[in-house]
Design a binder for these strands. Structure first.
Lengths: 340, 340
DNA sequence: ATGAAAGCGCTAACAT
DNA sequence: ATGTTAGCGCTTTCAT
């Protein structure tokens, strides 16, 4: 009847050790100003009793939770998964846990999830915004909680962001295709109105323009809108034949690859291809896939590090906008021949 | 000076609405026994003040956190990622968040992470145990918190588990290879002493034995121990040549595929291959990969559902051991010819 | 170096 | 239907 089903509390420890609650607390927190002997005695009692501090109660007073929140569109996406893993590692090093939620890319859900996280008193937030607009997040700034966005910045805000060189990476890929002598290059992708999408498209468009070539694009709202038949048509369209395809994200790449396979088109010889986003088996494909790889883990790591810096910083510092480089992996599908 | 930087609390709401704290609390919780008019009034004040309930404080009294903890070996692994995504969805439906940690497959770290989660008062735990032994987890049973293990069961415990038909799936794959007339089949994999590893090996070994064929295996402690040179040697060893390879998990598959590519061996014709674990590009490979696919999302979903059932159940019920079927995707690498 | 008392923001008993 | 009084388990003034 004394303890019901609950574990021992600090009060129990204190009583058992014959010290005051506060002293027990000091021992728990390695506070200075406690006799080593006392501390040791208390700690002995703690382990004897199997005492487990209640982290929630601990945070109540100081209104800190030792938790950070993270919101991504979809956990199952390898890009997000790597980032989350990295964030989690940094969080642990900083004595924090991560509360993870996914928004499905839905702004409404994202709002809800953010609200949930804030109510749970997370000390910081890392978010891959569903939309780039400020609206979704700004109300939380008032909650005084540090926010770092990754993958996309949040415009019109002074929220830190970690992104990659979307535009320049696509430019590099496009130029590589041009260097092979390809002239008719089709860019396929999704969400051209969202940040990453529009940046990537812009990289392609500007490069083509500079080369005085006609841009050819097939852009849709959502990856699921990509129509294999349209792609087939596009492949045949026009006077000559298409030289190359640039896929603007992983999902698109898979879809295009599938269509090409059905058509019996041989990538690399019949048509060149470069993919934004890498795959586990990209190297093993025949031909192996030339890709732009995003440093997903690095993105997560940096985002988390910045967040903790922000959280620990006494005084505010200017908005940080970190841009990481992608890496360009030239393999065979772009038309290059590898020595195997 | 009144509110510092903190948001409004329930006390503020109550005062502002001219009701008692308890009444405000009732309005917040949709408690019965409150006049609709009063409830409405309170809620109006809440939104006017931008009141955000402190979920941590809420849980303190009832010692519930509305959070579940999840521990996986590595978040970046697609299998884990899918499972986590599913768990998160179920958790949300149940009004819970998920606190996610990764153990790196390290038992010590796993213990630490579990300890952290329990201290954070998670209401339930889903874990892909680093080891199958009971030791790591049993001390938390005393904490009276429901635990569900997935991917591997925890032996000598009465912890619920969700697993897949590892052994039978490999048996099916092996039999398929045999049906093609292959006799010298090499099984390659890792962690043969851990649950999934040993089950898969057992599926292979028993099938070969029943067919009166010699088993040939290359098993290592850790995927990173897989030595390309050993694989090369194995490929050449013996009187005849090897007919087929069975890779016992995704990482192994990638490695073997890479070796085969370097050797110029053509999968499907020179040597057949079936992979335990699917890949995004498995279908697009030439030849496409025949695989055993684990229902990762389903695993996560079921684990979470079971956990919540357990959490909500007033009275205890017997240990559940749910085993889900994998799916066998016959493509080309096993020697089958697909109509393209 | 140690302790007593007062809360953190909320919910749970027990009134009324 | 509403309010009062205690806590939840811990940290934090402020004493001593």
């Amino acid at each position: 009847m004394l303890k019901k089903t609950n574990g021992p509390t600090l009060v129990d420890v204190a009583r058992e050790a014959g010290v005051s609650l506060k002293t027990a607390s000091r021992a728990l927190n390695d506070d200075p100003g406690i006799a080593p002997a006392t501390a040791k005695k208390v700690r002995t009692v703690m382990s004897r009793l199997g005492y487990r501090p209640n982290e929630l109660a601990r945070g109540l007073k100081g209104r800190k939770s030792a938790a950070i929140g993270m919101v991504v569109p979809n956990l199952a996406d390898p890009f997000s998964a790597s980032a989350v893993q990295a964030v989690q590692e940094v969080a642990r090093k900083n004595g924090h846990v991560v509360v993870l939620t996914s928004s499905g890319g839905d702004e409404l859900l994202e709002r809800e999830e953010l609200e949930t996280l804030v109510r749970r008193q997370v000390d910081g937030l890392i978010i891959a915004p569903a939309d780039g607009r400020t609206s979704t997040v700004d109300s939380f700034i008032s909650a005084n909680i540090p926010v770092v966005s990754f993958d996309r910045p949040i415009s019109n805000s002074n929220i830190d962001s970690i992104t990659v060189t979307n535009r320049d990476s696509v430019r590099e890929a496009t130029e590589h295709l041009l260097s092979h002598g390809y002239r008719r290059i089709l860019a396929i992708g999704a969400r051209p109105h969202l940040y990453t999408g529009s940046e990537r498209v812009a990289g392609y468009v500007s490069t083509m323009k500079r080369a005085h070539l006609k841009k050819e694009t097939y852009l849709v709202e959502n990856e699921s809108d990509l129509d294999p038949e349209v792609i087939q048509k596009l492949l045949k369209k026009g006077p000559g034949k298409l030289d190359a395809i640039l896929t603007l994200n992983g999902i698109t790449t898979m879809l295009v690859l599938r269509v090409l396979r059905q058509l019996g088109k041989r990538v690399g010889s019949d048509i060149a291809l470069i993919s934004f986003d890498d795959f586990e088996l990209a190297e093993i494909l025949t031909p192996s896939l030339t890709v732009v790889r995003q440093p997903a883990a690095e993105l997560g790591r940096r985002a988390a590090e910045l967040l903790f810096t922000r959280m620990q910083s006494k005084k505010p510092f200017p908005r940080q906008e970190i841009v990481l480089s992608t890496t360009f992996h030239i393999r065979e599908s772009c038309g290059c021949t590898q020595n195997i």
